Amino acid sequence: MPAGDLECCGTPCPLPLEPAIHDLASRILGLAPSCGPVRLVGVDGHAGSGKSTFAGRLAEALDGAPVLRLDDIASHAEPFGWTGRLRSQVIEPLARGETARYSPYDWRACRFGPLRPLPPAPVVVVEGVGAGRRALRPYLALLLWMDLPREESWSRGRARDGAEQREFWDGWVRAEREHFAGDPSRPFAGLLVRQRPTGYELLPGPAGTAESPPPLTQGDGPPAMW
């Protein structure tokens, strides 16, 4: 059974969402749209830092908000050179209030697949390494950074993907180092997300402003865990 799941009638089912994530979702819905009618929320961090899991939980709290995974936009040939494709296939249509259509990349077949629709929902979560990059930040309502050190993140990612992906990871680490050296995301995050044994801790980010959600707390206690 996957870690963090409950057993429902003999099959795994997800843990119920706790109040803090609903609070964050409510505050996100209170932000001004940032890309046409859409509030784009970026979830960035090093590869292996837990972005996909966190983005999925947040999307669930946002009544099933669409999640755009940047793994579908990147490719072997362009691990970070995808801003033009993202702009033309996703950003520009959403900014016009239209349904975006993008071609997700198949990392095993090494080719782009058929077009996939992405509607202009009230919130779209953009998850992946580079979600807070310079070219994308003007369109974000909020940037969240998964605050796990890069070496620990990469170790987790390598363990997750196994020996068959060792060569890919060697190349990816070099590319990610180069990307963040020239275009860092963490300094522009409104909130930092730290994974704890009992959930996640949300802390004010380096770029926290009056418009960004403040750290989530319950009463006078420590930052919220969920």
Rank of each mutant, 00 (worst) to 15 (best):
105 Y>S: 02
162 G>I: 09
79 P>N: 07
188 F>P: 07
31 L>Q: 13
91 I>K: 03
222 P>N: 01
21 I>E: 01
16 P>W: 04
88 S>P: 00
211 E>K: 14
99 T>R: 08
16 P>D: 07
163 A>E: 11
35 C>L: 11
118 L>C: 11
24 L>F: 01
160 R>N: 09
210 A>L: 13
50 G>S: 05
59 A>P: 00
177 R>E: 13
34 S>N: 08
151 E>C: 06
11 T>H: 15
142 L>M: 09
147 D>Y: 06
134 R>L: 12
190 G>F: 07
201 E>T: 08
201 E>C: 14
12 P>Y: 09
3 A>H: 07
146 M>F: 03
188 F>D: 12
188 F>S: 08
191 L>S: 06
162 G>M: 09
15 L>S: 14
123 V>D: 08
12 P>W: 05
11 T>G: 10
152 E>P: 00
211 E>D: 15
170 D>S: 12
107 W>H: 09
211 E>I: 12
77 A>K: 14
177 R>T: 12
66 P>L: 00
168 F>C: 10
153 S>P: 01
180 F>T: 11
207 A>T: 10
184 P>C: 05
119 P>K: 07
22 H>Q: 14
87 R>F: 14
155 S>Q: 15
59 A>W: 01
44 D>V: 04
203 L>G: 06
93 P>H: 07
95 A>T: 08
143 L>R: 06
91 I>L: 15
93 P>T: 07
121 A>T: 05
105 Y>E: 05
82 W>Q: 05
93 P>G: 12
181 A>L: 09
158 R>Y: 03
60 E>M: 13
197 P>L: 01
202 L>D: 00
37 P>C: 08
61 A>Q: 02
69 R>G: 10
30 G>T: 06
153 S>G: 13
171 G>R: 14
81 G>S: 04
114 P>G: 14
35 C>S: 09
